[in-house]
Design a protein around this nucleic acid. Structure first.
Lengths: 208, 208
DNA sequence: CTCCAGTTCAAACGACCGCTTGAACTATGC
DNA sequence: GCATAGTTCAAGCGGTCGTTTGAACTGGAG
């Protein structure tokens, strides 16, 4: 009645995160996006300004709820006193997998989009993602360092980067090369497995 | 005297693995490659047939010594009896980081190339890499399963995929967003850190 | 010298790229 | 009803893409 179910702008963002997540930034053309979104090519430049600006808007929209949830969990943990490594890892991983994978079809699309962009071949694109998640990341790094005092800052950074990479890897579903490997597993278990894997690595696998 | 230092074919492969490693497959044009290789554009189709065939040849050439070394280490380990998880992880990681990062400038180029292609946005490209490393991978999976009998096959596969992903991540140097994070670290230490991280995760972080 | 296979070359092919233009449509306020 | 701002549209811009073509060059064999 008031809104035509989905505005052109929203349709563009939805299709963009789907296609960019499937083929990457360079591998996806604006024409492919606009056709799938039933929009005119010029609509992209009208609503966003450029292809990269469309990507930027899509990244910002996709990351917003994840960042919010991470911030909320971190606030909550720090209010209760010194958090354990497991609590911190869980607070980082779960918003990326759970919150996003539990929302059915669209959630998986968003997760794949985020995971792909985070490690896009182009450094320019990667920085675009990093800018969206840097603030909260530095808070996590500091909290992790405090929770694992016996590890050097370099070791904590190393672990953190690995956590980031593994999360992106599973978000992007790049490991579905052989069907049935772990793709049909339910997201909850994946999150639990990943958390357990990382907790063990952080607790026993950080060299001085 | 006998060879003009480098044949056109070799120059194309060298530049291809450098540029593909920097910008990804879709983000690198044949013209950029041929210009940098001081070759004519048609040389690509003459020597290889197509852009994708050039990539395939580059992947095969880059992976060959890594696969050989992995096979050699695995043979050696299995000849001595039941290998430990650490031995297996080391035998997988070190050929990917050491053997390739220790060869100075060119080694780093090859490593980045492999790491990028392994998780390219396009599934087609990823499969191209997988085809080159699948045989040896299945041997590792079986050996890992035998070395960690208390873990389910799903858990071992999960750990293996994570190992693969982290190796590719560090090979591709995609984490050099902030300069100086860990980029200037020497490759030997990186390998040791990564092995320790993975050993701890495999030993204590695989859920039943 | 002639021949010929192997290689390199400039030039161009059609297709697609991101982006722009200017007109047409739509809906709201007066 | 009419102006106006917001949006959509077909069409086309210059440029780059991967690939192809046919001629020119190269060096060794007969």
């Amino acid at each position: 009645m008031e809104t035509p179910v989905e505005s052109t702008r929203e349709r563009l963002l939805n299709v963009a995160e789907q296609r960019f997540g499937e083929g990457g930034y360079e591998g996806t053309s604006l024409r492919a996006i606009t056709v799938a979104a039933a929009a005119n090519i010029a609509a992209v430049n009208y609503h966003f300004g450029s292809k990269e600006a469309l990507l930027r808007a899509a990244v910002a929209r996709a990351m917003a709820p994840v960042n919010t949830e991470r911030r909320r969990r971190l606030d909550q943990l720090e209010a209760r006193g010194a958090p354990t490594p497991e609590q911190l890892i869980r607070a980082f991983i779960e918003p990326g997998l759970d919150l996003v994978l539990r929302r059915g079809e669209r959630g998986a699309v968003v997760a794949r989009f985020i995971g792909r962009i985070a490690f896009d071949p182009s450094q320019r694109i990667r920085e675009l993602y990093a800018a969206e998640s840097d603030p909260i990341e530095s808070r996590y790094l500091a909290a992790l360092q405090a929770a694992i005092p016996h590890a050097s800052p370099e070791a904590v950074s190393f672990g953190y980067v690995n956590m980031l990479g593994l999360l992106a890897l599973h978000q992007s579903q790049a490991l579905s090369r052989a069907p049935g490997v772990g793709s049909t597993e339910d997201p909850g278990k994946l999150a639990e497995n990943l958390v357990a894997f990382l907790v063990a690595a952080f607790d026993h696998g950080l060299r001085p």
